[in-house]
Amino acid sequence: MKTSFATLLSAAALLVASSCSSKPDSVEQAQQINDAKLGIKDRDTVAMNSVNGTERPAFDSNFLTKAASGGMLEVQLGQQVAQKATTPEAKSFAQQMVTDHTKANEELKALAAKKNITLPTTLGKDQQEVYDKVLAEKGVDLDKKYVSEMLDDHQEDIKAYQEAVAKTSDQDVRDFAQHTLPTLEAHLGMVQKIKPVVDAKK
């Protein structure tokens, strides 16, 4: 049976689409590297009360890898929104995110290096989706989407950092989380304040 050229093109397009959709998650890749360093072959089998102590370093590496991707999102998206925003509130907030999270990211990198924890160097899947969704908007809709995503993002970040303070057994990791929490809480207060203003813009 002869295969038409159009059919071959369709098959090739499907392969390309499949390849793009299956792009590895940089956060998961970093976590897998860290698991290998700890000798963890199957994360699901690591009991929380394990006597070998690997569950705590695994928690720390998970927290730091996710925090790294989140921090990169704040900076990279903030840089874009600071240029493209139409409202002064969104523009100012984005600039503040770049300043504060650039500093926090450097502190996180230094901590990870000290603990021999591998961090992602590009946005993780979840963070990339947020980045793409915000920048797909134009004009004031971009501002509104950005502020909405930052509200959700900082609420989630605060929970993650509070959990790290409560669960980590590493004092350096706890110190980093405690030191960063007030900044995240300040950002949440800022975005809660400007959201009604930005949402009211036409």
Rank of each mutant, 00 (worst) to 15 (best):
K167E: 09
K167C: 01
S148F: 02
T86V: 15
S18A: 14
I158L: 09
L151D: 08
S18C: 12
G71C: 10
Q80N: 09
A17S: 11
Q155Y: 04
G189K: 08
A47W: 00
D143P: 08
G71F: 07
A82C: 11
Q162K: 15
E107V: 02
A110D: 05
A186P: 02
Y161W: 14
Q80L: 04
A47K: 10
L73G: 05
A85E: 08
G53R: 02
E137P: 06
S148W: 00
V98E: 04
T45F: 07
K23Q: 15
A164W: 01
K193P: 00
K41H: 12
P196N: 03
L111Y: 07
Q171T: 14
Q162D: 14
H154N: 15
K37V: 14
D44E: 13
L111A: 09
N52G: 07
A166D: 15
Q80K: 14
K202S: 15
Q83D: 13
K109P: 00
F59H: 13
K133L: 11
I158S: 09
T99D: 13
G71Q: 08
A85T: 10
P196R: 02
Q80Y: 06
K103W: 01
K138C: 07
G139V: 12
E74F: 00
G139F: 11
E55P: 00
D132G: 10
K195F: 10
I158M: 08
L77K: 04
A82I: 04
T102I: 01
V75G: 07
I117P: 00
V173M: 03
M97Y: 03
H187I: 04
V51N: 08
V134W: 08
N34E: 01
E156A: 15
D141H: 06
S4M: 06
P24F: 07
T122A: 12
G71D: 09
Y161D: 06
I40Y: 03
T45N: 12
A13P: 05
K66L: 14
K202I: 07
I33C: 01
H187R: 06
G39F: 08
L8P: 01
T99I: 09
V197T: 15
P88C: 14
A58K: 11
K195V: 03
A82P: 04
S18H: 04
D152L: 06
V46W: 02
E137F: 08
T121C: 01
E106R: 10
A30Q: 03
A67Q: 05
V46I: 14
L15M: 11
K195E: 14
V16E: 06
A11N: 13
D157T: 13
A166L: 08
T168C: 03
D153I: 01
M48C: 01
S26D: 12
L151C: 01
D199V: 10
V165G: 01
H187V: 07
H154F: 08
A17R: 06
E107Q: 13
K133I: 03
L64H: 00
S19Y: 10
A90H: 14
Q162A: 09
M1C: 03
K145H: 08
S61I: 03
K37E: 14
Q79L: 10
E107C: 00
G124K: 11
A113G: 05
I158E: 06
D60M: 05
M97G: 03
V165A: 09
Q29W: 03
F59I: 05
Q29V: 13
V197H: 04
